[in-house]
Structure formats: C-alpha cells, structure tokens
Design a protein around this nucleic acid. Structure first.
Length: 821
DNA sequence: GAGCACTGC
C-alpha cells in the first residue's frame, strides 16, 4: 500500500478561527423604509438613461485621466484587468519594501539587455524571499525527488503559482532525458523526454501575467521575444515560447489540446495544475489523463517519470489524495498479478526506503497564505431582500467606519447590481454633506470594457468607492483598496439539464469555499470586515465546495476529447467526480448522432477532426457539413460560427429610445431569415469596414470587443480549414458572392437537427424532439414572428424556456436532417 | 421582453 504522508507547514487553515461577530446593529441615523413610490420605481423596469458603450466610454475618459498609482509588481498572481498591459497589483508584502525599483518596462525595450534583466531579478529576489512558501523550497524539492505526485494547498498570497516552477526547474529530473520508445510497427525510436515544466491556469490573463512575472524574477526575456527566453506562455490566439522555454504557463484547454497531439506529454518533466479548487471541467479531464499517465507504465515516455503537482487554494485535498492513490493501487494490483509477487512485500513504513514504493506515494503540503485578518459579521436573522439589506449595510459601514476603505458588494446579476446602484445613489443625495462622498461603481461581465476599468482607478479624495459586482470579482478581477465585503450569499449558476437538453440559469446559494473566497477580498491590503447577508446557521448549511462543472454541463465535448485520446471505455475513466450515467449516455448518443463515433463507440475520422477544432462538437459538425457545400458556403458558415462561439455581438438596449436607435442603426444588418444570416451580414459589414471599425461598431450598437473576438476566431478557423484542405491555400480576399441562405441553414441543420421547433396552431413553438414549449428569445430578430419551423443555437431556461440564436427553416429540411442520421 | 463566470493547435 502506498503510504500517505501528510505534512503541514505553518498553521493549519481554519475558517472559524476568525472571530464571528454576530448582530448587525442598526444605524440610528439611517432608516431604510421603502415608500410606495420607490417600490413602484423598483418594480418597474428601470427607466434610467441607459449608458451605451459610447456614453460610458466618454465618462471613462474623464475618469481615466486621473493619475493611477504606479503599479509595482506582485509575488502571487493576478490582476486580471481584462484589457491592457497593467502590471500585477500590490500585494501586502510589496508595501514594506522601500527599495526603489525601476518602473516595469516592456520587454521589447530590454530584450537584448540581459544585465538589466539580471539586476531586476536580483531586486525581486528580496521580495521572493519574504513569501510564505519560500522557506519550504528545499522540502518541496526533496518531496518531489522521492515521489512523483505532490498535492499542495497554498492559500492566497502564499506565492505558489510563481515560486513552485522556479523551485523545480533546475532539479536533476527536470533535464531533457534521452529515451527509447516502442513504435507501432515494433521498432524502437530514440526521443528526448522532458526538460520543461507546464503550469496550467483556468484563465488566459492569469497565464500571461504569471509568465511575465516569473520571467522577471528569473531574469530572462519573456516568450518569443528572444531565443534565450526560458519562460513562455500559451493561450488561445497567443502563444509565446522560445526554443529554450523551460517554464510554460498555459490554459487548461491548451494543455488538453497539446495532449491530443502528444498524449505522453513528452516535452514535459512536470505538470503543475493550479487552481484546482475552481473545478472547471478541463481540470477534471487533465487530472484523469495525468493519473493514467503517472500510474501507468510510462511506455510512451521511455519510462521517464512525469512529476505532477496539484495545487489548490482550499484545504479539500482528501478526495484528490484518494484519487491518485487509487491509480497507484490499481497499478500495483496489476503488477502483482503480472509478476507473481516479487518480494514478500515488506510493508513500507512512513520513511520506507524502497524507492519504487516511494515514487508511488503522494506527498501533501499546506502553506499558510498571507492575508490580513477579516472579521465576519453575520446577519442575526434570515434576509428576504438582499438588495435592501445590502443598502443598509453599505451606509452603516460608510457612517461608522474610517476612511480609507472601499466596499465590495457581491450580488447575483446585472439586474440586482443596477437596482442597488440606483438605491445607493438616491440615498447618497440626502447624506450629511460633512461625510465623505460615495462613488458607486457597477461591475459585471457585460459591462463595456472602459466602464469596467473605472473600478480600478483610485477613489477621488474624500470619496469611498462602493463596487457592486457579480461573481466576476470572486476570481477574475482583483480590486485594490477594498476593506469591506458585503456578501449576499448567492450567485447565478448555469446548470445543464440532461433530460431536457437545456441550460438553466438559476440563483443558488454559494458554497462555503466561495464565501471564504469572497471574504478574502477584504483582507488583501489591510485588516477587513465581511458582512454576510445570511445567518451563521445558513453559512454552516452551505455546501463545502462549488459543484464541479462536470456535473453541471453538457458532456459532449469532454467525451469527444476522451475518445480522441483513446479512452474507449468511458465508464472506466478515472473521473475526479463521476457524472451521472444518464449524462454520459446522452453525450455519447449526441456524438453518435453527428457521426463523431462509429457504431461500436470508437472514434470516427469525423470525430478526430472535430476534437481538434476549437468549437463545440455540434458547431464543428456544421463546419464540416458546410465544407461539402462549397467554399463560399463554408466561408459564410465560418463567419456565423465565429459569432456563435463568442459573447453576444449586439449590445443590450434597455431603454425604449436606445432600442429604437438600435433598430434604425441595425436595419441594414437585419435579415428576415433570422439571427444566423443577420450575424453573417454583420461580420461582412464589419470586416469590410476599412476606415474605423470601432466607430462602425459604436454606430451600429455592436460590441466592438465581441467583434474583435469574432475576427480572432474567424482567422483561426479559416487557417485550420486551409490546413485541412477544406479551403484553398491562399486567403481569399475582396468580393464575396451573395450568400445562399438555404445552403447555410441546411448546413446548420446537420449539427442542430434536434435543436428545432415547429409552430403549433395556438401560435407557440414546440420542440420537434420532446414536444416542449419554447419561446423565441427577445434578443432575436425573429422575436414575435411566426414561421413554419425554427432552428436554434441554444435552449435556455431563465424565467421561462427560450430559444436563442434563431432562424426560420422549412419542415422538410428538418425531416431530411433527422432522417439522415 | 431579457443578459453568472470562465475557456479551446
């Protein structure tokens, strides 16, 4: 039996060690009683002059001109300002070092100046030494010399993401190693295995900013800027590595994609999987593949071991420990069966010297983070309206607590954010003028980029920032200056319902781990307070961790990836969390329907092709179908698919006037065939705009940011189609013939034959498979229209069932598409 | 009459 070794560094983490202070005292100066008028105003759909991207941008320009604190750099990750070249924000530690540092310069300026890189790295070394993890470097190295798998709990601020790769990169096992592998024809081939460390991240911005930081610390140029660069990154649309890359940050999806081409990860000596606690579906796949890799015979690596480090911010490591142990146990059993008991197994003690046994054991470490203490204050009784409760607490904090100290409020969605924004602004008008001012800043993903940036500008003098955010602020964005967190305890969660084949977006209680994460946002720069708008009893009843995405999403793509990796028996795949059988079966059926699998369940040529496309299997299938309808059809379908695989390209129009303006501005873009052809005409018009695309987008109330992504995807898909000989080698430019709507929509039906509905006599639509009622989403150009049958991209449930991304089709096309399977 | 957050050679 492999021996489990627990090692705890520092104090163990304990959420309840923070003194819980109960009872929220009412603020005498403020009574929040809603009058009738206000209630009406809130209940009505907000009529406030809705800020368009243009208007927001104008506001921003004013604000952005204020001096932004010169950023120093951060030992631990992050800053994920979604745009621009912002450097990482302050961590507590950097405040204490007064060593004057040169302002970070772009590597373009310094790429030949290795002396200055070295000087900078030397300066940064002093900061690295102060990180909680730094003193454990030798221990961590020793553990990985003895064993192949290490689990590491590193709390926020421990420095794990930047330091672990640097601790390991010069280890003997991290050198490129010559090896011989058996080829399919039975001959041996000499290859080089290892030499590089991969560190996976759930988000692109994190991968890039970590790579930049680690390059600075190591005194090496970043990525492809120099052939001598030792640190690089790889994310979609942006890979920056050099022949000398030893440390590579990449997104989880990118590693999966690499594994399709190199199943044994022969480039790597180690894979570090970071942020496992977020439990995106890609992490589950990576973990399963890695377990098979480390506990198998390593034949594809010529026997060279692969070291695996799994890192998480929360202490739930037992399941991971069991997960990897199970793999080793299975391997052991196989070995014992195979070779009839080699020795009379002297059971290994804690410090057993049998190296074979040791490399199979798993080591676990716990590194205390560096956070300031945050006091938790629970609501004394259950809260019914968290918007009102948040309003009270915001003013309570503002009246009682000293400046500085901004307030971050976690809400569920755009609607609650905007409601509370109005309420706070109304109350702030009547505030005692001797008090500091309040600046309310909304923050959610659909907000135009420029408006998001306002959150990062420091507050004007004598002003307290109140940031009203969705859970975008939980992981993706770090706002400095926050000392007070108000947590409503809820979030909108997307859940795929297998039986109905539909996505639901519902407000649900968050997990304890998310609550702790939210609370932590108050203690990044100074001691803070976290006001939970729920009782302690409610808190204790929350789930420990977030529901893993693999239990909440459509598994079609995940299964296709597994099949393409040669996992034939899905039931035997080591799932970190096993999805219900029904969900797996549904996904398999879907893959059969689009010809991605052969009848015996093994992957088909179509499936192999689909797995390599950066698209969902259904959209990929549409692409292949379109390629059979000629180059022109394929080019048009690529434009549409590009729109469908990014966020909404049309800006929301909440007010009546804006809506009318949008109607007028977009009139020349709308197509009566539906949303698909409307997207096509939009891409064509945008791509054909040679003067100023940004201005064009603003004029048409089209999201410029979304269109930039569309163009990235379009370019990627076109280039992939050219490599696959589906398009001619040269980029076709210039004039395109008029599209053929019938051919385009028929191509879509070959992937989406089951996403169709027909008009029934009562005027509503019923799905053709399942006979469920579905309404056309109000954002569709077909909203309110009646046609024989519709094809839709998405079936979602919010307040009711909606079809999104809708086009009109003929019933006999649908019949043909369904019969064709 | 409506928009939680991520991500892909």
């Amino acid at each position: 039996m492999p021996e489990k070794v627990h090692t705890y560094f520092g104090d163990s983490y304990n959420e309840s060690s923070n003194q819980a202070v109960k009872a929220v005292k009412a603020v005498p100066e403020l009574t929040v009683v809603e009058d009738e008028g206000r209630k009406k105003r809130r209940n009505k759909k907000r009529k406030r002059d809705e800020a368009t991207e243009e208007a927001q941008a104008q506001r921003d320009n004013v604000l952005v001109e204020k001096p932004v604190k010169a950023p120093s750099s951060a030992p631990e990750k992050v800053v994920t300002v979604p745009v621009g070249n912002k450097e990482p924000k302050h961590e507590p530690s950097t405040d204490q070092t007064s060593a004057p540092k040169p302002k970070p310069k772009s590597f373009a300026d310094t790429k030949t100046n290795f002396t200055s890189l070295r000087e900078k790295a030397n300066a940064l070394y002093e900061l690295r030494k102060k990180l909680p993890i730094f003193g454990h470097a030798d221990e961590i190295r020793q553990r990985l010399r003895d064993r192949d798998v290490m689990l590491l709990v590193g709390e926020t601020g421990s420095g794990k993401s930047t330091q672990i790769p640097q601790f390991l990169v010069n280890e003997f096992w991290c050198r490129p190693t010559p090896a011989k592998v058996l080829q399919e024809d039975g001959s041996e081939k000499s290859i080089t295995v290892g030499g590089c460390i991969a560190i996976t991240q759930p988000r692109r911005v994190a991968a890039i900013s970590l790579a930049r930081r680690v390059a600075e610390e190591m005194g090496t140029p970043l990525g492809s800027s120099s052939p001598a660069s030792k640190v690089g990154y790889s994310v979609r649309f942006d890979t920056s590595t050099s022949p000398s890359t030893r440390v590579k940050f990449l997104t989880e999806g990118m590693l999966l994609q690499e594994m399709l081409h190199d199943p044994w990860l022969t480039k790597y000596s180690a894979v570090v999987v970071d942020e496992v606690h977020e439990r995106g579906i890609n992490v589950d796949l990576v973990a399963g593949f890695l377990r098979n890799l480390v506990s198998g015979k390593r034949e594809g690596r010529g026997g060279v071991p692969l070291k695996v480090v799994v890192m998480s911010a929360t202490a739930d490591m037992e399941s991971l420990m069991g997960f990897f142990q199970e793999g080793f146990q299975e391997q052991e059993q196989e070995q014992q069966q195979g070779q009839k008991q080699l020795s009379n197994g002297t059971e290994n003690g804690e410090n057993g010297e049998n190296s074979e046994q040791n490399s199979m054991a798993i080591s676990a470490c716990h590194i205390k983070g560096r956070q300031f203490p945050v006091k938790t204050i629970y609501s004394p009784e259950p809260v019914h309206d968290f918007v009102d409760a948040a309003l009270k607490i915001i003013f309570q904090i503002h009246y009682k607590e000293p400046m500085p100290g901004d307030i971050l409020v976690f809400l569920t969605g755009q609607e609650t954010v905007e409601n509370l924004e109005n309420l706070v602004n109304e109350y702030a008008i009547g505030m005692d003028p001797s008090l500091p001012k309040i600046l309310v800043l909304p923050l959610f993903a659909a907000l135009p980029q420029a408006a998001q940036q306002r959150v990062f500008a420091p507050a004007p003098p004598r002003t307290r920032k109140v940031i009203l955010a969705t859970n975008i602020a939980e992981t993706s964005v770090t706002v400095s200056g926050v000392r007070y967190v108000v947590d409503c305890g809820k979030a909108k969660v997307k859940q795929f319902r297998t039986r109905l084949g539909l996505d639901s977006l519902l407000v649900k209680p968050i997990s304890k781990s998310a609550a702790i994460q939210r609370k932590g946002r108050a203690g990044r720069e100074a001691p803070g307070q976290c006001f939970r708008l729920y009782t302690e009893k409610d808190y204790l009843a929350l789930d420990e961790t977030n529901t893993p995405e693999i239990l909440r999403c459509d598994l079609t793509q995940a299964l296709l990836n597994m099949k393409a990796r040669g996992v034939d028996d899905i039931v035997r795949f080591p799932f970190l969390t096993r999805p219900p059988r029904e969900a797996l079966e549904k996904a398999l059926l879907q893959l059969l329907n689009i010809d991605a699998l052969q009848d015996d369940g093994s992957i088909s040529d179509v499936g192999l092709h689909l797995a390599k496309l950066p698209l969902s299997p259904t959209l990929g299938r549409v692409l292949l179908a379109a390629s059979e309808n000629g180059y022109d059809c394929l080019l048009d379908v690529i434009d549409i698919i590009s729109c469908l695989s990014v966020e909404n390209i049309f800006l929301n129009t909440t007010s009546e006037e804006k809506k009318e303006a949008a109607e007028t501005a977009r009139r020349d873009l709308y197509r009566r065939e539906g949303d698909h052809l409307t997207m096509l005409s939009t891409v064509r018009a945008y791509a054909g705009e040679n003067v100023d695309r940004k201005v064009w987008a603003e004029r048409h109330l089209v999201s410029h940011r979304a269109m930039q992504s569309v163009m990235d995807v379009r370019k990627q898909l076109r280039s992939q189609c050219r490599s696959a000989k589906m398009l001619p080698r040269e980029e076709t430019t210039g004039h395109y013939p008029d599209p053929s709507p019938d051919l385009i929509l028929q191509s879509f039906l070959s992937g989406f034959a089951t996403n169709t509905a027909r008009l029934v006599p009562d005027g509503s639509y019923r799905t053709i498979v399942g006979n469920q009622t579905v309404a056309i989403h109000p954002s569709s150009v077909l909203f309110g229209k009646k046609v024989e049958a519709i094809l839709y991209n998405e079936f979602v449930f919010t307040n009711r069932s909606y079809a999104r991304g809708v086009s009109a089709v003929q019933m006999d096309w649908v019949g043909e598409a369904l019969a064709g399977r």
